[in-house]
Simulated scan of single mutants.
Amino acid sequence: MRPGAVTVGAVHGAALLLGAAGLAHTLWHGVAEPGNALAFGALVALGELARRGAHPGEREPAPLAAAGALAYALLGDDAGAATTHGVLQVVAVACAGGLAGIVPHVARGHGPGLDHLARRVLTVGFAALCFQPLYNSGTVTGRLGLGAAYALFLLLVLGLTGLCDAVLAALLLRARTAYPYGPLLRDELRALLGIGSAVCATGVVMALGVGAAGLWALPVLAVPLLLTQVSLRRYEAIRTVNRQTITSLARATEIAGCTPPGHARRVAALSTAVGRELGLGGSELTVLEYAALMHDIGQLSLVDPVAGGATALLPAAEQRRIA
């Protein structure tokens, strides 16, 4: 068995065991604060229903579900009254809500990948483990109160959770692609500054809002994140159109008979593979790929195509003109 398959199996197995333990514990001991569990479970399910399929490069296709699960993991008070749910109930609610929300997508054949589900379970469990025992024992409220220090503590927990998620995501990508781990981790950490920061901020605000105003805060605070999700999808759609345009232009030299069929795609694949080995990532790889796809576009200015597209055999002055 390949080492990458062992890594992926270990991560999936850990998530499966944690989710099963949470569901079994909750079913055996009952649900603490059923109203809170139902509200946050419904929010996670709604977030999964709002998923429309990940665009290339989209890190979190269901940000509302992620924010709702993290908010429940960091929920202390409910309208001023202390809550008593623990780590395993947080995992159970996140799993139940997520499974309920992805059923329609699975029925249409567009369900989320197992890697994404495993990361969600493990990161939510990590956030709950960092917060719930300290809150239930009175350590957090006793030493920090419920003011600014409490909010900063929640942000610290979410920062550690985001780091945990980035490490897991890079680890799974490394196992599946064999690309260098460093650039993959760097890309994941950079992605946290995008939709990841919005998810973390919404999770903290939801936890604090429910603590102050009750469950009525959830629908109010969910709307901005949904609008952000729509904006990001439009941005990703524009990037997809740009990529399709560049790919079409790259094929123009093949249609004109200037280069062999598939030449631009092969050069782009080879260039990005070399770029990853050299430690490039993110936007650098995108620029390299686009440059590789378009590297022969100047041949369209030739009156007669060069045999095999080998412009290296032309005089230097002609090569500069084509470039």
Rank of each mutant, 00 (worst) to 15 (best):
L192E: 13
T228L: 15
L193R: 15
L208Q: 07
V210T: 12
A191G: 06
A191H: 09
C200R: 15
A212G: 08
L192A: 11
P224R: 15
L226H: 04
L189T: 03
R190S: 13
I195Q: 10
V220E: 01
V210C: 10
T228N: 13
A201L: 15
M206S: 13
T202L: 01
A201S: 10
A212W: 12
I195C: 05
A222P: 05
V205Q: 01
L218I: 14
L225I: 09
G196S: 00
T228C: 14
A217Q: 09
G203F: 04
A201G: 06
E188P: 09
S197C: 15
V205E: 02
V204P: 08
E188L: 02
P224S: 12
G196P: 04
A198C: 07
Q229M: 07
T228D: 11
V220Q: 05
I195F: 02
A222H: 07
L192D: 07
G194F: 01
W216G: 13
A217P: 10
W216T: 15
L193W: 10
V205T: 12
A213C: 13
Q229E: 00
P219N: 07
L193H: 13
P224T: 12
V223T: 01
V220H: 04
L227S: 09
L227D: 08
V199N: 00
P224Q: 11
E188G: 04
V199S: 00
A191E: 02
A198I: 03
L189H: 05
R190Y: 11
E188F: 00
A198F: 06
W216S: 15
Q229G: 08
A217D: 00
L189C: 08
P219W: 03
V210F: 11
S197A: 15
A213G: 12
Q229P: 03
G203W: 06
A212H: 14
L226K: 11
A198V: 04
A212P: 10
A207N: 01
V223E: 04
G203V: 05
L215H: 12
